[in-house]
Structure formats: structure tokens, C-alpha cells
Design a protein around this nucleic acid. Structure first.
Lengths: 126, 126
DNA sequence: CCCGTCTTTTACAAAACTTTCACGTTTGGA
DNA sequence: TCCAAACGTGAAAGTTTTGTAAAAGACGGG
């Protein structure tokens, strides 16, 4: 008799994160959008994981930098912004009409997958 | 009764793997592409089996090396890359216009026969 | 030995990634 | 309405990773 194993192998952690139509496997470097694999760079993937782990909350650039790059964010360093932009581009390319990363000027970014809205449904909430 | 343990679990000798138009018999060293037998070297075959057993997931070079060559991948060793290239060449020769092995720079390789392809977003979805 | 085949190593070009910079746009307070 | 700070993002510059041809080494059968 054999011990039941979660996925029949002894490979990386089986941790899986879900966010909207996204399935993220941190231990593997893989993210699936509607079942299709995305090709993200190491930094893009790191950012996505870091934000997904704090889904719905505002995360400062300092925290994101520490989590993904390691160390302290130096004044004037725009790396986080640049990679947030890259990530947005790829996520929205894979899943049009959806917003994932929301900017909170002066505070940071908030990750929260949202369905698209109608043009007349504008509101102060984001 | 003994068991030829290749890697990652227990497999009977009658094991047959399917991946797209590929039929693989690990116990026989046989690969059929659209019914025709492929002529693969030992390493090429090992790679194909190792990847097929983890179809759809990203597998690092270290893991592939351990599974096929055995032991640890030393820094600077390009064996895996070279054989991925050889394997790609033969697979593509047998089944043109089909992609099997996808590169995820910084992470590893992912084996997935011809995912249903979205004609746009080709740079993002892989 | 001599071949043919497979494996390993090497080398270089191409592709991809990261960092930095620049500048236009947006935001929020006065 | 105005302005300074914050943000978005294309692109340059530099670095790293990957693709692959070819050289070099290994091995077994004639």
C-alpha cells in the first residue's frame, strides 16, 4: 500500500495562490491566466506573488521592494513602478478588461482582481 | 518483484504516457509521433520522459539534470540546454508547427504540447 | 585501428531581463 | 486654477540567460 500524496511527486512546495482568474504557483514560477501559462520574468513574478499574498491591502513600495528585490528601497529608485507597469501590461494582455493592480497615490499599490465595468458605472471606488 | 524506479514515484513497466500526438513508453524506450517511431538518444528520451511526467509545470534545470543525468547540476553545465535543443529539433521535425517545450527564462522549461493558442497575446501567453 | 553514434564541452550570437533615465500625465492640496 | 510631488511608461544601456553549431571526448562493433 502506498501513502497518498498530494500530487504524486516530491517536487517543490504545493502552494497555490488564487486571485480571480489567476492561478499562481510560487514554488514553480508559474502563473496561469484562465488556464494558460503566462511568461513572466523573475521580477514580475516576484511582484505578483508578493502582492497576491497581501491581496486587497495597500502595500508600500518599500515593502514590495524588500520582498522582491531584497534590501532597502533607495530614494529615487523607480524599479517597483517600472515593474508594476510591466506586470499590468502582461496581465491585461492576457485578460483584457480586467484590472488587477490599483494605485493609491502617496501610499502604494493594492492588488485586487476586478471584473470589467460598464462605462456608466464610474464611481469613486477603485 | 522489482521496480525500475526512474524518478518521482513508482511506475509499472506497462506505463504509457500521452502528450498531444505523442505516445511514450518509458519501459521500452519508445516514442511514437503520430504513430511513427522517433529515434531518440538515451538522454533525449530521458528528458522527454522527465518532462512529460511533469507536463504543464515548470521544471528547473537542476531537477531535469537530477532526473536524467543523476546527481547535481554543476554551475556552467549546459547539458540540459543542449539536449532540450536537440529534443526540440527532433520533435519539430516529426511534427512541424507544433511547440512542446517552452522556456521560462530564470525558472526552467515547461513541457506542454500545443496549448490551444490565442492568436493575440503571443508575447505574453506561451 | 576506423567508423559511426552519442555525450560533453566550448564558443558565440541572439534573446530576454534589469536598471536607469527622461518626460509627459495625473493627483491632491492650497 | 495652479503647482509640486507622485506616477506611468517608452527606451537606452548594461547584464544575464538561452539557443545552437561545432569541436572534442568516449565507446562499442567491425
Amino acid at each position: 500500500m502506498e501513502e497518498p500524496r498530494e500530487n504524486g511527486g516530491s517536487h517543490g512546495q504545493a502552494e497555490v495562490l488564487y486571485a480571480g482568474e489567476l492561478e499562481i504557483r510560487p514554488g514553480e514560477g508559474l502563473v496561469l491566466a484562465t488556464g494558460r501559462a503566462l511568461r513572466l520574468s523573475v521580477r514580475e513574478f516576484g511582484l505578483l506573488v508578493a502582492m497576491t499574498r497581501r491581496i486587497g491591502t495597500i502595500v508600500t513600495r518599500e515593502e514590495l521592494y524588500a520582498a522582491v528585490w531584497g534590501g532597502e528601497l533607495r530614494p529615487g529608485d523607480r524599479s517597483v513602478d517600472v515593474y508594476v507597469s510591466k506586470l499590468r501590461t502582461k496581465l491585461e494582455a492576457a485578460m483584457p478588461d480586467r484590472r488587477f493592480i490599483h494605485t493609491h497615490p502617496g501610499f502604494g499599490y493594492r492588488f485586487q482582481p476586478q471584473p470589467s465595468r460598464n462605462f456608466h458605472n464610474l464611481s469613486v471606488v477603485d
